[in-house]
Simulated assay, not measured.
Amino acid sequence: MSRLLSEQFLQLDLLLARYQAFWRFSPFHFSELPWGQTALAAALQQLGTEQNERLELDESYRRDYFSVFFPELNQISDFERTSFNNTGSIHTELPFWFSRDIKGRKLEQIQAFATQMQQGDLPVLEWCAGKGHLGRWLCFSQERKVTSLEWQDVLCAEGQLLAGQLKLSQHFIQADVLVEETAKHLNTDQQVVALHACGDLHIRLLQQASRVGTTQLDIVPCCYHLIATEQYQALSIQAQQSRLGPLSRDELKLAVQAQVTAGERITRLRQTEVLWRLAYQELYQAVQKVKDYRPLSSVPKHWFSGEFSAFAYWAASEHQWQIPVDTNWQYYLQLGQQRHALVKKMQLVRSLFRPLLEQWLVLDRALFLEQQGYQVQVKQFCDYQLTPRNLMISASKS
């Protein structure tokens, strides 16, 4: 077993446990800073809007600013960023047809993944493939034979059509990896790739592939909180013995809260959503004379292009109570803005521990594979600005 990965995990585990009072809570449940009359609380209260925004946007500046309170965080090293390796690529120039169906930064992520994955000539199984964009690029750039596994029929059909039009050696199989016996699609002489497979989807892959003894795995995990159980089921021995104890799904969400790829409109709608939810909470607590926070289910983002009153009426119907007809909407929006400013300050502190928690989760997966007999490397496969979920696990078994 790699001492380096194990030591990294134990260091992260120690820090996350020591400082869990600063990240293991939900800011929406608090109407004041949860750290009492401390120097940290005083520093947060003194932050102006401009400095607060800079701290939100600049992770390095944020870590330096708070280092007086959490000096150990500067001792945590990021996983290495390896240089691009095109030795396995036969065609590296991007043909015009490839980018037509791929939106945003996905194409750059695919190309970065392809250059950082283990190179070779094994048949490739693309896990949770969608339309098979990654598999299609591997077929073209490395002349690999690819089987793409995807549960949505329509995506399989569209992906197969594209592969056929381009005469690529890519075959789609419709399968729900969470309910079917997917081991039949895995074998030893194979390389499995998964780019941003969510929660239980990539956990299922790790468990099934390691059981079969698949030769090579290259995985970029995502959305760690999308699991069926209320609490996270640790994979490795080290994580099962963690000082943290069981992590809830809400706590896992912290690991994926960094957003750098969203457009201006989506960012604005997210901010409006938080503000309105907090303003509604102020209204609910005032009228119902309660202090407890009541969560709401998710709603489409278009809700937040309308009026706050419409959202509040919907939320009240969800919670089964009547909003008074003479409600002063502007007053509660102002209270929501004050609460939002407070939440932002708490999130600044919580966000210091976001990368640590994500590394903890990635190392849990890496150590699990080591315990199944794999040689494992964890690295950044691309720049953080291209995608915050930029940690790749590469595992091989001889």
Rank of each mutant, 00 (worst) to 15 (best):
D218N: 15
E230Y: 09
F353K: 14
L247A: 05
F30E: 00
M392P: 10
V212Y: 12
H319D: 15
T229M: 05
L226R: 13
K131T: 05
V376T: 11
P324E: 11
A239G: 15
T82A: 14
L73C: 08
G164W: 00
I173N: 01
T182N: 03
Q359E: 05
Q109W: 01
T387A: 08
H202E: 03
Q359G: 00
S305W: 01
P295F: 05
L33N: 14
G120A: 05
P123W: 00
A255K: 12
D292K: 10
I266C: 04
P324C: 00
D200A: 15
K345N: 14
Y293M: 06
D200P: 06
R243C: 07
Q240R: 15
E143Q: 03
V343R: 11
L205N: 10
V378R: 04
W35Q: 06
L254T: 01
T188R: 14
S89G: 10
A197M: 08
Q11Y: 04
L361W: 08
F172R: 07
F368M: 02
Q271Y: 02
T327V: 15
T49C: 09
F96T: 12
L161E: 10
K379W: 08
S77A: 14
W303T: 05
T115K: 06
V68L: 07
T87M: 07
V146L: 06
G104I: 05
V68C: 14
V290K: 11
L73N: 06
V378K: 08
G245T: 02
E80S: 11
